[in-house]
Design a protein around this nucleic acid. Structure first.
Lengths: 201, 201
DNA sequence: TTTTCATCTTAACATTTATCAACGAGAATG
DNA sequence: CATTCTCGTTGATAAATGTTAAGATGAAAA
């Protein structure tokens, strides 16, 4: 059960001792989600972070009755409604399961205690925050510097798995266009020789 | 000289001891920038973080010969080409001074040493990363969920100082439109009664 | 199996936004 | 003072993208 998450911690914290790991594991709780289940809903305060042991989830907002995806998280990554988690304010976003999921959770309270009790865990928190920052900054930069077609191309190249597991209309909102428009772009792109254009990030 | 930055640290780390502060200050170096000077250039690896003691700077990319602003940082904030700083890879972005600036710098090497030497400094690093994450995540969400007009409205409401100190064409690229289009939106907006629309984040 | 539902595609049309060019105001410079 | 230069505005036009509606396909459900 904990094989993957232990490897994840060891990768970020090569110096993590067996003792510290043993102090960590009692804090873990397991959560199962079925396809379509919500992990967090708009208006809630997020009080945990989840390691995705199995499955795939999405972040999304509902604007004017439409769902807009802002991110996807698959196995072997950490996931939370971080804005809400960090600010302790209700989030406007939702997270739900696109597939059957198995999560390993860590509560806010436990995390705060771990920060105090295990110095190296503070490093873990910092590195997670730094990773998330880079991911989200990359996305922002792409929204501002790339065309929709280029953004789709990047998704294809960097996250080929997403194409397999996520409906196209979700990808469309993720790159900031309508499903119909993405369909046309795809149609236009097929058969093209690989282009070289300015790519930021 | 260090009044502002000390208050900044004390705010983030209320428990910061006078001793720890004294170990920190020798690492600071002062940098002056004139309007138009670059702090970091595309292609460079960022090896420091800067506290803005005075002035205003912008992040920007050059795409197809055009400058696209992705952020602004004014006095009393930390600033760096963080993607490059964290990954130790060359950045595609630039930072330059929109006004005469005074910066208080901390080098990568010193930061790494401080992480080891002063445990509470690790907390500082984590909180900075968390703050940056929230800022940039908010921007991404707005690019995906708000119209250009709404995005401009948000800038007006949240950063009225930016309007005063930054040329409009930079604001335009920051919210993802052309200067001409922003000019038209502003024209259209004047005289309107305050609207209430769905606002995410 | 049949039926329903979700997803993707396509077309016609509308709207938004970009492009290109010109002009004017005001600041900076000589 | 005259002269650039930067910046914002406006207009005409083009391109990109959204909207609405319809149909096709295949998966899920009855």
């Amino acid at each position: 059960m904990l094989t993957q998450i232990k490897a994840y911690y060891k990768n970020i914290l090569p110096n993590l001792s067996e003792e510290d790991w043993e102090r960590l594991t009692p804090c873990f709780t397991i959560q199962q989600l079925k396809k379509g289940d919500y992990l967090t809903r708009s208006g809630e305060v997020c009080k945990q972070v989840s390691f995705v042991n199995k499955g795939l989830l999405r972040f999304f907002y509902v604007v004017d009755g439409r769902e807009i995806c802002t991110g996807f998280v698959q196995e072997n990554n950490y996931l939370a409604q971080y804005d809400s988690f960090l600010t302790r304010q209700p989030s406007a976003g939702n997270i739900d399961a696109l597939e059957e999921c198995e999560l390993i959770n860590l509560s806010s309270d436990d995390i705060q205690n771990l920060y105090k009790a295990i110095p190296i865990f503070e490093t873990f928190g910092r590195k997670i925050a730094e990773m998330l920052f880079i991911i989200i900054m990359t996305q922002t930069n792409r929204l501002l510097t790339l065309s929709p077609e280029e953004r789709y191309q990047v998704v294809l190249e960097e996250h080929p798995y997403i194409i397999q597991r996520v409906p196209q209309y979700m990808i469309a909102s993720f790159i900031g266009i309508t499903p119909e428009h993405l369909s046309r772009l795809r149609n236009k792109m097929t058969g093209k020789t690989s282009r070289q254009k300015t790519k930021i990030v």
